[in-house]
Design a binder for these strands. Structure first.
Length: 376
RNA sequence: GUGGAUGUAGUUCAGUUGGUAGAGCACCGGAUUGUGGUUCCGGUUGUCGCGGGUUCGAGUCCCGUCAUCCACC
């Protein structure tokens, strides 16, 4: 269930209520693809760094350890000891991004596992079954994510098929939720908008997708090769066609600046690997700009990453120490950097919500659009 | 003391019949958008042990010398 509390232009302040609690929106979902945040961060750490909702992946968990295994162990929440909301991605994106060999048909996709190359078939019903076994709070529809740019004719066929897949997801999802002994009978389903970079396809597809009753809607297939401005333009076109009373999720986005711009365009939920991946490589976000912690200039720097940050890392460790950990290849380097960057993203969203609460989002956006772009 | 081997980038080493030096790693910088943590891109680095000689030209040939290592006395 989603409650819209307040709006400022297109920007929205809301509350998303799931079987495992609520998330204040706009929110950034912290990505734990394989039921773990990469870099040695646990679900307990997520609590400490302000994460409200976690994201895991259907495709990865299906391959290993297997969704049946997780069901047997009581579902994903129990499996990773996380009692707050979880969203599971459907596997559609991984079919597109991870497997070289894939064959797309009306029934679904046959592709080679990235682990051992064995052939796997996944369609709408399989994805729904896996996500049901995982017991996530929000299941994503099984879609096809097309890279940008792709030919118009292909994108048209693809998003028509994604629409038919959504109808099948909806039917299967309702059937599974009603079965006795299902892990999470209150699991929600979000539909996904596609259409590449073609305005008419995007708008048509969104209108058709909205006709299928889902508990939320996502915009997918962006930040996959197109210019950032093209992404913004497409969101501007699609957003007016999204149901006002349902949460909107922009999949796989983005940088702190992207978040500000897209909140301003009416998006409620985000997820992105960027803060964690960048952290692992030493690229760190601060309230004064972005820094590369591996740079030599931090070798003898006694200051914390960000004096204005209250994360567990900034409260205790110096830049010089963290740089040393990176230079030495210590696991702790990644862990601490990931904790900081995710805390930063969660805190950024928290401040965005606070600004929305008092009707000052546009000022907030203007101020931080400048600050966050600085390279330290 | 005698015989032999080796001295080239921070490091391990290449360097073809002599044409004023290269590679891996390291180091420095950049990239990364519904995550294959080991990826990709770019950059810096040298009195070629030292001193002479031959040559238009020497890391490469000759002489001397120093250092290190090995074997033998």
């Amino acid at each position: 269930m989603f409650q819209l509390l307040k709006t400022e232009h297109h920007a929205r302040r809301g509350v998303l209520t799931c079987a495992h609690g609520t998330a204040q929106t706009p929110a950034f979902m912290n990505v734990g693809t394989q039921a773990a945040i990469k870099g040695g961060v646990s679900s307990h750490d997520l609590k400490e760094i302000g994460c409200q909702i976690e994201l895991s992946n259907t495709y990865h968990l299906h391959l290993r350890p297997g969704d049946e295994v997780i069901r047997e162990l009581g579902g994903l929440h129990k499996f990773m000891d996380w009692d707050a909301p979880i969203l599971t991605d459907s596997g559609g994106f991984q079919v597109f991004s991870l497997s070289g060999l894939r064959k797309i048909k009306e029934e679904g996709v046959t592709f080679a596992s990235h682990l051992d190359g064995r052939r796997i078939f996944m369609g709408p019903e399989e994805s729904m079954q896996i996500q049901s076994n995982l017991g996530s709070d929000i299941a994503m529809a099984f879609d096809e994510c097309v890279e940008n740019p792709s030919p118009y004719a292909y994108v048209k066929d693809s998003c028509e098929r994604t629409l038919r897949w959504l109808e099948r997801c909806k039917v299967e999802h309702e059937r599974l939720n009603a079965l006795p002994g299902v892990v999470n009978p209150q699991q929600m389903l979000f539909g996904i908008n596609q259409g590449g970079v073609f305005p008419d396809l995007r708008v048509w597809h969104m209108k058709e997708t909205a006709k299928i009753d889902c508990e939320g809607y996502a915009i997918g297939g962006l930040a996959v090769g197109e210019e950032t401005q093209v992404m913004y333009d497409i969101i501007d076109l699609v957003e007016p066609n999204m149901p006002i009373e349902k949460p909107r999720y922009l999949m796989g986005v983005g940088t702190p600046l992207n978040l500000l711009e897209c909140v301003d365009r009416g998006v409620d939920l985000f997820d992105c690997v960027m803060p964690a991946r960048n952290a692992r490589h030493g690229k760190i976000y601060t309230w004064n700009g972005v820094m590369n912690l591996k740079n030599e200039k931090y070798k003898t720097d006694p200051r914390p990453i960000d004096a204005n940050c209250n994360c567990p890392v900034c409260r205790s460790f110096s830049r010089g120490y963290l740089r040393h950990l990176f230079a030495s290849g210590e696991m702790l380097a990644m862990r601490l950097a990931v904790l900081h960057n995710l805390y930063f993203y969660n805190e950024l969203m928290s401040r965005i919500r606070a600004a929305l609460d008092v009707g000052e989002f546009s000022q907030f956006k203007a101020e931080y659009t400048q600050k966050l772009a600085i390279k330290l």
